[in-house]
Design a protein around this nucleic acid. Structure first.
Lengths: 217, 217
DNA sequence: TCGGCATGCGACCGACCAGTCATATGACCG
DNA sequence: CGGTCATATGACTGGTCGGTCGCATGCCGA
């Protein structure tokens, strides 16, 4: 958690630091990311940085568990609880793609929880985030079963397979759709024009069809 | 590519270096991995290492494009071409799980191509390996379509979704099945006892059912 | 006006890294 | 024997890193 001083900072200064940190951690792995770079680019002396955060991990953890999820929720909004299960799944997927296209760097950080690393604290952090995501998806799927949308002999296995489809799988598909590398996308602020709402709906629908009926549908 | 000197090395010395390199690159990201560690653990002076390889990347590339695939092919063997498409897919998946269980470190290196990194040369290498894998899977799926096993409106999208299922998705499922973290698995030489051929067949079958019929099957 | 406290700051520290280089070794040849 | 060539070796270089420390600054209430 950031130190109290951080929250007392002038907005402009704090924002500069946060944006540069998001940029750095989106473009590089935790291990590759450099505090010195973040400090330099946000024009905040390293000594000052340590007035705001305990250390590199403290900043990274705050971004992954607080700042990024907050912004993601704000963007994605609530997927209506009143709808049919398959529609909700499709909405979830469409919103996920929208987030990726409109806020690529936040989306990348959001996905960073799947990154491998030898640093044990980071691994623990990543694992906790992954498990939370799995749990959320699992509860959605449980409601799907309850509503009779489908049956699953092993909901754990099903959850994990669906999770990889709507996570890395769809990211892969979207990047191919955009005809761009992840790092090109990260450098761009918005790819609205190249993957608008209509096309996203089509892709989301295809994905749901695949999850629902597989290849043989 | 390794320098000629490398191939003239006494087997024992060469093997020691290769094994320690595989261990290091399996447990750590390319950026995290340390040549100094590899050298120290394989009791080969750093100066000598540079007689065998151009640099760190040269070693990593050789492992990922030559040594590991060679060992993987040797282990996995050929999946019979004469069989039914769905059977071949199931075999492919079962062999993949077997490889993961019997040679966790090689399997991890094999999957490292999906790791993100800011190092441009490594990104190029990883991308090339990923594309080759996608291409291979795509040609399998093409045969599936040709044989009438299924239809796919967009084979590119289908290929990528199937790839993430049988890649990260199944790894995830297997780890859960083993009740272990990836790093615990890497430390173990063989998990034969905890995920034998019979159980692997069951899981592979489930996975194929999911790919074939989705959740709604 | 003064003193104290939160904050700003950048030079600095020790650790580690990838990669180099000068020197040493020893097998083979004339 | 002397000479050459492939190879072995580890101290060393230059650089980056995360993190610290001691001093400077400026706002506060008294």
């Amino acid at each position: 958690m950031p130190k109290p001083t951080f929250f007392r900072l002038p907005d402009e200064r704090r924002d500069r630091l946060v944006e540069e940190a998001i940029l750095e951690f989106a473009e590089r792995t935790y291990a590759e990311a450099s505090l010195s770079q973040i400090a330099q680019r946000s024009r905040i002396p390293k000594g000052s940085f340590y007035q705001y955060f305990e250390d590199k991990l403290d900043l990274y953890r705050w971004l992954l568990t607080d700042e990024v999820p907050r912004r993601k929720r704000a963007f994605v909004g609530d997927v209506g609880r009143d709808r049919d299960f398959w529609t909700r799944l499709e909405d979830t997927i469409e919103r996920g793609m929208a987030f990726l296209v409109e806020h690529p760097r936040l989306a990348r950080l959001s996905a960073a929880a799947a990154d491998p690393t030898a640093i044990i604290e980071v691994r623990g952090l990543h694992k906790a985030i992954c498990e939370a995501g799995i749990e959320e998806l699992r509860s959605l799927l449980e409601q799907g079963v309850a509503s009779g949308a489908f049956e699953a002999p092993d909901l754990d296995v099903a959850t994990r397979l669906v999770a990889t489809i709507i996570g890395p799988g769809l990211t892969d598909v979207v990047l191919r759709e955009l005809g761009a590398e992840l790092h090109e996308v990260l450098a761009s602020d918005s790819l609205r024009k190249r993957l608008g709402p209509k096309r996203r709906r089509v892709l989301a629908h295809q994905a749901v069809l695949f999850i629902r009926h597989g290849l043989g549908g």
